[in-house]
Computed example of a mutant assay.
Amino acid sequence: MEFLIAPIIVALLASALALTISILDKHVNNYGDVEININKGKKVLDVKGGDKLLTTLSSEGVFLPSGCGGRGSCGACKCKISTDIGPVLPTEKPYLSIEEINNNTRLACQIKVKKNLDVYIPEELFNAREFSGIVEEINDLTYDIKEVIVSIGDESIDFVSGRYIQLVVPPYGKIKESTQRAYSISSKPSERNKVAMLIRLVPDGIATTWVHKYMKVGDKLRLIGPFGEFEKSDCESVMICIAGGSGMAPFKSIFHDMLEKGEIDREVWYFFGARTTKDLFLLKEFQEMEKKWPNFHFIPALSDCSPDENWDGEQGLITDVLDKYLKSKITPSKHKEGFLCGSPGMIGACINVLNDNGIKDIFYDNFA
Rank of each mutant, 00 (worst) to 15 (best):
E147Q: 15
P90D: 12
E99F: 10
N104F: 02
P94Y: 06
I152C: 09
E137A: 14
C109F: 02
K146T: 06
P94R: 05
I98Q: 14
N102Y: 06
K93S: 15
A128Y: 04
T105W: 08
I157P: 02
K93H: 10
Q110K: 11
V88Q: 08
I134T: 15
I145W: 11
D154F: 12
E100M: 05
N116P: 07
V88D: 05
P87W: 00
E99L: 14
N139I: 14
D158H: 14
I134M: 07
D140F: 12
E124K: 15
Y95S: 05
A128G: 09
N103L: 12
E155F: 02
R129S: 08
I101D: 03
N104V: 03
A108F: 08
I111S: 05
D140Q: 11
D154I: 10
I98P: 10
K146I: 06
T105E: 08
I138K: 12
K93E: 15
A108I: 10
A128E: 03
D158L: 11
D118W: 00
N127M: 12
E136H: 12
F159G: 00
D158W: 12
F159Q: 02
N104R: 06
Y143V: 10
I121Y: 05
K112L: 08
S156T: 14
E124L: 06
T105V: 15
V88F: 14
I149S: 11
N116M: 04
I138T: 07
I149K: 14
K93D: 12
P90W: 04
C109Y: 08
K93P: 01
V119N: 03
N127E: 14
I98Y: 01
N127I: 02
T91K: 13
Y95R: 01
P90G: 03
I152L: 09
S156E: 13
V150T: 14
A128N: 09
I121P: 12
S156K: 15
Y120T: 14
V113T: 02
N127F: 11
N102K: 13
K115M: 03
K114N: 08
I157R: 03
K93R: 15
V150R: 03
T105Y: 12
P122T: 00
E124S: 11
T91M: 12
N103R: 15
D158S: 14
V148F: 07
Y143E: 09
V148A: 04
F131K: 06
N104D: 04
E99N: 10
K146M: 01
K146V: 01
D144I: 10
N102S: 15
V119R: 02
S97Q: 04
E99Q: 10
Q110G: 07
V148K: 09
N103V: 01
Q110D: 01
D158G: 00
Y120M: 11
D154S: 13
F126Q: 04
D118R: 05
L96Q: 08
L125R: 03
E147Y: 12
K93Q: 14
F126S: 03
R129C: 06
T105D: 00
N127L: 14
I111G: 04
D144S: 11
D144W: 01
I134N: 09
L96E: 07
N116Q: 01
T105C: 08
E123R: 06
L117P: 04
I134C: 09
L89A: 13
P122A: 02
V119A: 02
I152Q: 10
L96K: 09
T105L: 02
N127S: 15
K112V: 10
I134P: 04
A128M: 07
E147M: 13
D144N: 15
N103G: 07
N139L: 13
E155G: 02
D144E: 08
Q110I: 03
E100Y: 09
E136Y: 10
